[in-house]
Amino acid sequence: MRETNEQTAMRKHESAEPSNGTVLLAARGICKFFGTRTHRIQALHDVDMDVREGECVAVIGGSGCGKTTLTRIMFGLDTADAGTVRYRGGLLAGPRSAAMRQLRVESGIVFQNPFTSLDPRWSAGRSIAEGLVVRAARSGRRRHSAGDGEAIDAAVRGALAMVGLDPDDFIGRYPLDMSGGQAQRVAIARAMVAQPRIMLADEPMSAVDVSGRVQILDALTEIRRRQPHMAMVIVSHDLGVVQQLADRIVVLHDGRIEETGATGDLLANPQSAYTKQLIAAAAW
C-alpha cells in the first residue's frame, strides 16, 4: 500500500516537470474553503496542476471532489484562498492583472448547461460573435468598419462549421429553437471562435441527452484534430469521452490530486485504489 503511494507520488512528480510543450497554465498549492466561519469545508487541499501547450487534460473524480472548483479557479472564474495560478508565467492577481486579461482573451470556456450559458434573447450568431465584437471595438477600430464585420462573419461561420452546424441555418437561430446538443455546440463555437490557446469544458455533455452527447464529442474531437496547438481541459464523468479526447488524466479525490498520468497508462494501469474503483465503476 505504501509502495503504491510512493509510486503515485513519483508519477505525480514526473508529470509536474515540463516534458514536451511549455506550460501554459500552472496552479500551485491551491486551497479553497466554502461555508461559514464556524462550519467550513475545504474543497481543495494544496492542489498542483499544469496544463501544457497543445495537450488535452481530463480532470476526473467522484461528484463533489472539487473538479469544478479547481478548474474555475485555474481559469480565473473564482479565486483561491491559498496558492497561485500562473498563465504563461504571469500571476493571475485580480481581474485587472495583465495575466488575467491575457487569459480572458486567449481562453474559451464551455459551461455545463448550454441553455443557461447562452443568452436566450440572443441569436446564435450574436452570441458567438460577442467576444470578437467587443475586441474589435476595443482595439480602437470603428465598430462598423466593413473589414471587421466581414472578418467576424467569416469567423462565426467557420466556428459553426467546425462544430458541425450549418452556418446558414444557425446564425439567426435562438437557443429556444435548438436541441441540447445543438445549443452546446453553439456554446463550443463561441468558445472556439477567437481561436483560443486554451479551452475549458466542464462536463459539457452531462446536461444533454445521449444523441446530443455524440454530436458534442464529435465536435470536440474535430476541434482537437483541427487545432492541435490548442490546450484543452475537460472535466467529465465519462471515461469513454476522456479516453477519446485526453492526452493526460488528473484524478481528483476529496479535494486532493490522487493520481495523474498519460491517458493510456493511467486507464490500463491505475496505481491508486480510488482510481481503480473509478475505472471499475465505469466498466459496468
Partner: peptide, 28 residues
C-alpha cells in the same frame, strides 16, 4: 448570476456592456 453573463465576463466583456446587453434585456 447566470452562466451567460459569466461567459461574457470571461471573454472580457465589460461590466457596463454586460449590464446593458444581457441584464437589462433579461428584465424586458
Amino acid at each position: 448570476r447566470s452562466a451567460y453573463v459569466q461567459a461574457a465576463r470571461a471573454m472580457g466583456v465589460s461590466a457596463w456592456r454586460v449590464f446593458f446587453t444581457h441584464i437589462v434585456p433579461s428584465t424586458f
